[in-house]
């Protein structure tokens, strides 16, 4: 067995201390070590985005990142998006706009969509497509996904008007 490393990091706002083998990926740590199975394996090569999570405010493919590299970082997974019982507005938009079919790619897709809107609250549809190019979905043809993100962007615009 490879050497083990003691890690301290923040996961969905809570501190985690855990020992991991040096070669473990973040995806395996989340799914097998921490039993957070919302983050999905679908290719293991960074080609499909099903394992997308946010680390220090940037999205990455957790199948590629080494768990050891989480030391001192802040992680958000799909399980950390909602507040209490209420779905996060992005999650709700995906539900409301019919963007979820088999749903397997959705945790990664939703994390990525949320990141895109945080980066640019006035995202255009073309920018959404570019921003989601690393997330493969086999069910939806992406159209309803884009509708959902557009609705959240619209929501932000409306909020902006209210406050402005």
């Amino acid at each position: 067995m490879s050497v083990k490393i003691n890690l301290d990091f923040t996961l969905n706002g809570r501190p985690v201390t855990i020992e991991v083998p040096a070669e473990m990926t973040v995806l395996n740590l989340l799914r097998d070590g921490l039993d957070l199975k919302g983050t999905k394996y679908a290719c293991g090569e960074g080609e499909c985005g099903a394992c997308t999570i946010e680390v220090d405010g940037r999205t990455i493919n957790s199948c590629l990142m080494m768990a050891a590299d989480l030391q001192g970082r802040a992680v958000m997974t799909i399980e950390g998006m909602q507040e209490g019982h209420a779905l996060h507005p992005m999650q709700q938009a995906f539900v409301d706009h019919g963007a979820v079919q088999c749903g397997f790619c959705m945790p990664g897709m939703i994390i990525q969509a949320n990141y895109l809107v945080k980066q640019n609250p006035q995202l255009t549809r073309e920018e959404m497509k570019r921003g989601l190019e690393g997330n493969i979905c086999r069910c939806t043809g992406y159209t309803k996904v884009l509708d959902a993100v557009a609705a959240v962007v619209g929501l932000n615009e409306n909020k902006g008007l209210e406050h402005g």
Partner: peptide, 21 residues
Amino acid sequence: KRIKKPDAPAKAIGKTRYIND
């Protein structure tokens, strides 16, 4: 009408247990 998929919320929050899980 436009009916929401009943299993969509659990899928959207990553709670659904797929066979893979």
